[in-house]
Amino acid sequence: MLKIDQLFAQIEDKGILKGLSLDVKPGEVHAIMGPNGAGKSTLGNVLSGRDGYEVTSGSASLDGKDLLAMEIEERSHAGLFLAFQYPVEIPGVSNLEFLKTAIEAHCQAKGVEPPSSAEFLKQARQACKQVNLPQEFLKRGVNEGFSGGEKKRNEMLQMMLLQPKLCILDETDSGLDIDALQTVAKGVNDMRSPERSFVIITHYQRLLDYIKPDFVHVLSDGQIVRSGDASLALELEKLGYGWLNAEESA
């Protein structure tokens, strides 16, 4: 599904990712953990093609297609979805209009007929239920005046409707109360399937209480320094990130 090989990336002249490699197979859930400044958010941004990041060497592919050669929207059409840490507001553009435009763009890229308005509305309402957002939110401006929790649920709503192959969650759990956290986790768990993979970027272990990852990786100074199963997250939680550094320098 996702294959990253020896990826180096920088912002301006500052190196952030320094030879990161990762192999995510269909159906797998990978958690990426690490201290602040390790390059966690950069990973999501580089994979989705955000401006301001320069890839200096290495490769990243999705289903064998070179991600780094694609435009931002092409990566989306190819099935990559990034759930944002800080979802931005688009005042006056209703959620429904936004979602419909996005789905139509995806259908157009795939050369298939977009769903009818009635069919789309049905899907959108169903997805609202699943992420516990009242249906009025479909009429409101995108994230306009939403609470932190509502914004994250809205991210899940978008993810459900777009049905991506690869979902990258960039610290989606930050700033969430326990209810919102559970809703986000439920959204992910509902969507888990043998054809879909997840990369969950998080600073804390607590989201992993609700989403059980297949693999946990520790990112430090732009590289994956340790990989393991779910128990690695618990170990980190107990000992803190300082433990890694101490071990490395020892």
Partner: peptide, 26 residues
């Protein structure tokens, strides 16, 4: 950030700018 959100969801720049401006005028 607004443009990046739109494009990440598959909407091209032209359509995104037009959508954002239309929203502003709603």
């Amino acid at each position: 950030d607004q443009l990046f959100l739109c494009r990440q969801r598959g909407i091209d720049t032209e359509k995104a700018v037009s959508m954002i401006v239309n929203g502003f005028c709603r």
